[in-house]
């Protein structure tokens, strides 16, 4: 015979599980607000559904530090941010209200650039220089890997530009999708080629 008292202490009744989950969700939101007000958060994050899949958005106090496609594995990305930046990693949906609104506008073809502070601390050296250059490629325009290499000051470093794009910590916001091959084909994309195609088509149509 089962022991109702012990079972009920150990876990809510199935009918009550939803109420407990709702209370916890409200408390977690309150925690995120209090923690960020007290400067206790190394990395705030949330996920957001977009036409190119669920994106992980992560930010430090300085700005957005990471955007990750599902293919990168959101859990793995959070683990690496925890090691690289700090383990006070906390979900905070409100932190990204404005960015999510801007993403909605972008995917609706109504927004051509993002007005958001970026934290580029995850990129170094030449890769950082490449990313700084990519930020200047206009909406709807594309550039070849060779041209991006030349513009970044190292015309022979075409492969290094490819690597900088492949390891871009801030895809979409730093538009590495606008870099394509000299033969007119797309080249690679860390979010997958269908995502790159969708972004290029979106920007060409708008």
């Amino acid at each position: 015979m089962s022991d109702n008292l012990i079972e009920q202490l150990a876990a809510p009744r199935p009918a009550d599980a939803g109420a407990v989950a709702g209370a916890v969700a409200a408390l977690r939101e309150r925690l995120a607000g209090a923690a960020s007000a007290q400067g206790l958060v190394d990395v705030a994050f949330r996920t957001v559904e977009t036409p190119v899949g669920a994106l992980l958005l992560a930010a430090t106090e300085a700005g957005v530090v990471r955007v990750a496609y599902p293919a990168e594995g959101h859990e793995a990305v959070l683990e690496s941010l925890s090691v690289a930046i700090g383990s006070r990693v906390l979900r905070d949906t409100r932190r990204f209200d404005d960015l999510c609104h801007q993403l909605d506008g972008y995917f609706a073809g109504q927004r051509r650039h993002f007005e958001v502070a970026l934290d580029l601390r995850l990129a170094h050296g030449f890769r950082l220089e490449v990313l700084e250059h990519l930020r200047t490629i206009a909406y709807g325009a594309t550039e070849t890997y060779a041209a991006a290499a030349a513009a970044s000051g190292r015309p022979k470093a075409v492969r290094a530009v490819g690597t900088a794009c492949a390891t871009n910590p801030l895809p979409l916001l730093v538009p590495c999708h606008r870099v394509v091959r000299s033969d007119g084909t797309m080249g690679g994309y860390l979010g997958g080629l269908p995502a790159k195609q969708l972004l290029l088509d979106l920007e060409a149509a708008a």
Partner: peptide, 19 residues
């Protein structure tokens, strides 16, 4: 702890609330 704090929140927040 090197792991993200949010893992601890996700895993234990309900039981801590009941406690």
């Amino acid at each position: 702890m090197k792991h993200p704090f949010d893992q601890a929140v996700a895993e234990h927040s309900a039981v801590v609330l009941r406690v």
